[in-house]
Nucleic acid binder design. Sequence first.
DNA 1: TTACTGTGCAACATCGATTGTGCAAAGTGA
DNA 2: TCACTTTGCACAATCGATGTTGCACAGTAA
Lengths: 350, 350
Amino acid sequence: MQQHPNRKPTIYDIAQLAGASPSTVSAALGDAWKARRISQATVEMIRRIAAEQGYSRNMQARGLRRARSGLVGMLIPVHDNRFFASMSQSFEVNARQRGLVPVIASSLRDPAEESRVVETLIAYNVDALFVAGAANTEAISVLCEQAGMRHIFIDLPGRSAPSVLSDNFGGASKLTNRLFDEMPAPGDGPRGRPYFLGGSEADYASAERIAAFRAVCRERGAMVGSRQVIACGYSPRRATEAVAKLLDDLGALPPLLFVNSLRAFEGVLGHFVTLPPEAFAETVIGCYDYDPFAAFLQFPVHMVRQNAHGLITSAFEFLDAGITDPVIAEVAPDLVPPRTIFRGPFAELG
Amino acid sequence: MQQHPNRKPTIYDIAQLAGASPSTVSAALGDAWKARRISQATVEMIRRIAAEQGYSRNMQARGLRRARSGLVGMLIPVHDNRFFASMSQSFEVNARQRGLVPVIASSLRDPAEESRVVETLIAYNVDALFVAGAANTEAISVLCEQAGMRHIFIDLPGRSAPSVLSDNFGGASKLTNRLFDEMPAPGDGPRGRPYFLGGSEADYASAERIAAFRAVCRERGAMVGSRQVIACGYSPRRATEAVAKLLDDLGALPPLLFVNSLRAFEGVLGHFVTLPPEAFAETVIGCYDYDPFAAFLQFPVHMVRQNAHGLITSAFEFLDAGITDPVIAEVAPDLVPPRTIFRGPFAELG
DNA sequence: TTACTGTGCAACATCGATTGTGCAAAGTGA
DNA sequence: TCACTTTGCACAATCGATGTTGCACAGTAA
């Protein structure tokens, strides 16, 4: 029937089979057929034949002609992270609801890769780009502006387009306040002070959380020197080393420990394994970000659950509304209380 | 300079600026310029002008002409799952290494959505499709064959193309054997038997694991009736209910519990919260799939870490080698010993 | 019959890049 | 100088779908 056995049929093939012209076929298969005054009988015949032939539109040709692609891109740092994976899921559902095809790309936090990815998405003519967690937002702004690309920043503020931000300051304030509420009586000297661990001050979200941590500490009348903020990055290994050193310096866990990310917390646990249970009696621990299993540890961990779904939903609202000015929306994260499993020796801490 | 302020420049614009023809520009910007005998000087001039103008190739036009897109698709059930998120990450890295743009789409385990997604990817003319975790592989086989689409199945066997499988039978055997090694002396009656919980027998991977569980139980001389395999699905809630009922029936935890997924394990923990610590003294627990935090629980949990990276790497090897026959490759998962945090009251179990 | 309005569709240009072909001009050897 | 090769590039067709324009024919009113 066809020349190449596996060539996909085009509107020209369908047109020939239907005894119609390609333009009629095109109209009949889309929703332009009414406006183009194609009779319903013709439309039905063409659609039947197209279905029989397993026709599917060539989106490249369509996109070329219409100067849009039906794709919508999202840039994230990594896929294998709860927060971003939730965003991906929500992004995908929202995009499909709007008849768009989501393309999710990760930059591995590398600014060069980041720019390359944005250029690629522009080359594919994505209709809009969501930027979540970029290292160099300014470079992205420039690229998008040059290409006249609709874009929206998520979880970090951008100069050139709307931004949807997680309220990192608010979330970190809530968490820090909760930790102070639960904190055993502080001791004297460095040993009695609250500590913050993980992340990088260069990262927008981390900077906000650190600022909130400092502010609440001051409100609560606690000392907070630069030594108390240990921004050791995101890798578990670095966190393990940092917490080991901290214990070495202080001789014990501090009364309050704010861990900035799950990855850092993973590292922290890597060192905790080596400690006796008593080490945890006089400390309260919080973690920014949520993991269901971390909530089930033997000692209570207060966690912040970011609202990935809310962030994406807000971003799509900007898209739907056609807003392109650099306005800002904020979405509040939630505090999740510990669900510590059968508290064992620590029941008295509850 | 340009008519529309934000129109992206095309090769025609560059050609005019460079005083060359569009075909020369096209060749100069790609790697065909040597074959087309464009002088190096011309190439350099054109590239300079293109860079100045912020030119980027229109991949839709290129794809249309060349009958390929430079895209490679992967279908997964969900994004927000450790295993699939790891696969996504690995897929992305591998695709980019080969100069392809990855498009990752999730089906939410809905067969209808699944087919729609595959059709969409075909319409965008992706150069190859990886299918990981599909509900209806036969429908996908048919669609791909119809379109002449290269595809590779991951973590489930397909009829129409190569498959890369996680060795679920082997992994579950290893885990079950380990659990038997660590199991306290079995009691009499149902209460003394091993149990399997979570997943669905209709799912290929789960079926393999259940078969392995049964086989090892028999080898080890344990009874294994149909009551001992509780395939209650993937949702945490169902697992919570199932484990509650089990405890109710038996009056205690069984000596050996094989939990089939992290989501189910999450549900199991939801019930464990209500139990006293002593409840865990006479049981050994395993979970198929790995979570760093779950490895740090108060009681030891033996986990299987699936090799997402290995699966993807093998799949790309099939792709690179141009293999299209339905051959099968298997990738072995790893057993991860518990890293139980300061074992507390259970140190004697170690 | 004439003029006019609809109806139903075909013809054709177009989107931007790639690629087969052709053709001058420069270079080479006799 | 002549025949021949090589160099360097332009021209035009093409990929598949869309949308504008135009045309034949039917129906209708005067």
